[in-house]
Computed example of a mutant assay.
Amino acid sequence: MRIPGALLRHSAGRIGLVIIGVLTVAAVLGLLGLTPHDPLAQDRLARLQPPGGSYLMGTDLFGRDILSRLMVGVGQSFTVAFLSVGIAATVGTVLGLTAAWFGGLWDGVAMRMMDVLLAFPAILLALLIVAILEAGMATSVLAIAVVYTPIFTRVARGPALSLKTRSFVDAARTFGSSRRYILTRHLLGDLVAPLTVQFTLALAWALLTEAALSFLGLGTQPPNPSLGLMLSDSRNLMEMAPWMLIFPAAVIMLAVLGFNLLGDALRDIADPRSRRALS
């Protein structure tokens, strides 16, 4: 079954695609600098202007356009989320596959390391890494990648342990296939579906983690726009300028909802029992 067509036939998948599609377009425009106003430009005469007129979503305490800052902030958040989850998926998949294939001491050492990382709450582990290193976007990517690597390791290792004992793997060995070919073509090929689902769901949590780090001042640093920083700036102005809180919070909520809907749809598509209902 082709994934795009199946997603379009899935109600949650359609909604998720629309949400993520709109946010992705806004993020790309923001990263390219195609925003209604300069997101860093300050206009003292337009401070705390409510939504309307030339400022569709109003302005903040420094007279900066919130819509423009949201577009750039979404781009920053998506960049951090995709980079960090991409690193975690790559490292975790390699660790999980090799641990399942070789077993023994390597499997024990690798999985005990993952258990240690999983023993920490995700946000606390990310805070610890950022506190040790210098706060910034690159550190956020590294911290989130470390946090989510154990999840992908477990997702890859479990099915790989079962797959390596299957008859088609024995047949590949008999025909002289190399270890690399078996790992990449046979084992990894059968893990694409669960890893894709996990990748999509991890993006939602990565966005929340990045927003939390920025909210605490440990992620993206000012004056660069960030969804978490915008929420932090609105804390003392919620009654006077509620739009400063509402719009960044709504964008975070929609992004997380969109990725979760996509993940749920992909999980249904990957499930053979649900696949019959969608076909």
Results as ranks from 00 to 15, higher is better:
83 L>M: 15
67 L>Q: 08
71 M>S: 11
81 A>Y: 01
80 V>S: 02
72 V>G: 10
67 L>M: 12
85 V>E: 10
81 A>I: 05
71 M>L: 11
66 I>V: 15
70 L>F: 00
90 T>A: 13
97 L>Q: 14
97 L>C: 13
77 S>I: 05
81 A>G: 11
90 T>Y: 02
95 L>T: 07
95 L>S: 10
83 L>D: 12
86 G>M: 06
94 V>N: 15
84 S>E: 10
96 G>V: 10
83 L>S: 13
76 Q>V: 06
95 L>Y: 04
90 T>H: 02
92 G>Q: 04
96 G>K: 06
69 R>N: 06
93 T>I: 11
80 V>H: 04
89 A>N: 02
69 R>M: 09
77 S>Q: 06
76 Q>H: 15
87 I>L: 12
74 V>P: 00
72 V>I: 12
84 S>V: 07
80 V>P: 08
90 T>P: 09
74 V>N: 06
83 L>Q: 14
83 L>H: 02
83 L>V: 12
80 V>E: 02
88 A>R: 07
83 L>K: 09
74 V>C: 10
78 F>M: 09
75 G>H: 03
85 V>S: 03
97 L>V: 11
88 A>M: 12
69 R>Y: 05
92 G>V: 03
93 T>S: 14
97 L>P: 08
88 A>F: 14
79 T>H: 08
91 V>W: 02
81 A>D: 12
84 S>T: 02
89 A>H: 01
79 T>G: 07
78 F>V: 02
74 V>W: 07
77 S>F: 00
86 G>W: 13
68 S>A: 05
80 V>W: 07
88 A>P: 08
94 V>A: 15
72 V>Y: 12
84 S>I: 04
67 L>N: 07
86 G>I: 03
75 G>A: 01
72 V>S: 12
92 G>Y: 09
97 L>G: 13
84 S>A: 15
79 T>V: 10
73 G>C: 02
87 I>N: 03
96 G>E: 09
92 G>H: 08
94 V>I: 15
95 L>H: 12
87 I>Q: 04
85 V>Q: 07
80 V>L: 10
93 T>Q: 08
69 R>Q: 11
88 A>Y: 10
80 V>F: 06
96 G>R: 07
80 V>K: 01
85 V>K: 04
74 V>A: 14
68 S>Y: 00
67 L>T: 04
87 I>T: 04
75 G>N: 05
92 G>N: 04
82 F>L: 12
80 V>D: 02
78 F>Q: 00
96 G>D: 12
